[in-house]
């Protein structure tokens, strides 16, 4: 939902970042307002996942230039946990397995950290169980997964459902979903996409990172960005995703080979 007067949630300006002295992001510009759904597409290695990790505060990445403001605040000055508590959520492409840590306990501690930030009361074990059972419906997840260790032995689809369950519990302002569709069969994709659509509202925003049009058939984006060589090469509406599906990414190489235009492509 595009509302030009909606408040800006995330404003990325000329973002450069590197890992192990290897520059990956070369000046990303992106503005996301409340209510919007953005899709970020591009080939492997174009910097999509790096952008998501930099936004979430992964310690392995260093920002060398540029800024990110989240609801007007300097996001880069915050620790990963502070970003999450303020409402930045990263759905992992490869959710991490944590043997021995109960999924239910993990979800409760995370939910309470966010609730504390929002000024809500912390939930005790019983109230939390009520809440989590209700939210399980969003992703049609079997309650048995609550009793297992975090993501341990989960199938690819179960892990992604668990990510969206966390999103449903944490109620983020900006959700960055890194290839949430990868490794999902048709049914799981429908369920996960349905969950994301349910959670999208006028006061939050979603940045979907994906390779494929099929996720965007289930979740209609307001903007589609194409990323290449660590920057956003082109921005358009949902038709851009269809165009990519038809034409592939070869044009990206041509565009990258061509001299940079005087004024860089501005992403909204």
């Amino acid at each position: 939902m595009i509302r030009p007067d909606a408040p800006i949630l995330l404003e990325i300006t000329n973002l450069h970042a590197q890992i192990d002295d290897q520059p990956i992001l070369h000046g990303v510009n992106l503005t996301i307002r409340a209510g919007e759904i953005h899709a970020l597409m591009g080939r492997n290695g174009s910097g999509k996942s790096t952008l998501s990790k930099v936004l979430a505060g992964h310690p392995a990445y260093t920002v060398t230039e540029g800024s990110v403001r989240f609801e007007g605040e300097d996001l880069l000055a915050l620790s990963p946990e502070e970003r999450a508590r303020r409402g930045v959520f990263l759905g992992f492409q490869y959710p991490v397995e944590i043997p021995g840590v109960s999924n239910l306990e993990f979800l409760r501690v995370a939910t309470n950290a966010r609730r504390q930030q929002l000024g809500d009361d912390e939930l005790d074990t019983f109230s939390f169980e009520d809440l989590v059972r209700e939210r399980l419906g969003v992703v049609q997840m079997d309650p048995a997964f609550l009793d297992r260790s975090v993501n341990e032995g989960f199938s690819g689809g179960e892990k992604k459902r668990n990510e969206i369950l966390q999103m449903a519990l944490l109620n983020p302002r900006v959700a960055i979903l890194d290839e949430t569709d990868s490794g999902l069969d048709i049914d799981a994709l429908r369920i996960v996409a349905g969950g994301v659509c349910q959670l999208a509202g006028p006061n939050n925003a979603t940045l979907l990172i994906t390779h494929y049009q099929r996720l965007l058939e289930a979740i209609t984006p307001d903007f589609v960005h194409v990323m290449a060589a660590g920057r956003l090469l082109r921005t358009g509406g949902k038709e851009l995703a269809l165009e990519l599906e038809e034409r592939g990414y070869d044009w990206v190489d041509e565009e990258l080979a061509a001299p940079r235009p005087a004024s860089p492509v501005e992403a909204r």
């Binding site: 979430a56 505060g57 992964h58 310690p59 620790s79 990963p80 946990e81 970003r83 999450a84 508590r85 990263l90 992992f92 959710p95 991490v96 944590i98 043997p99 021995g100 840590v101 306990e105 993990f106 501690v109 995370a110 950290a113 966010r114 930030q117 260790s149 966390q166 944490l170």
Partner: peptide, 22 residues
């Protein structure tokens, strides 16, 4: 990082991980 990205402070995250190990 996974735990911290869910709002769990580094120290508490370490404790959770160690508890898991034990």
């Amino acid at each position: 990082f996974y735990l911290r990205s869910r709002g769990i402070a580094a120290e508490q995250a370490s404790r959770l991980l160690l508890r898991g190990v034990c």
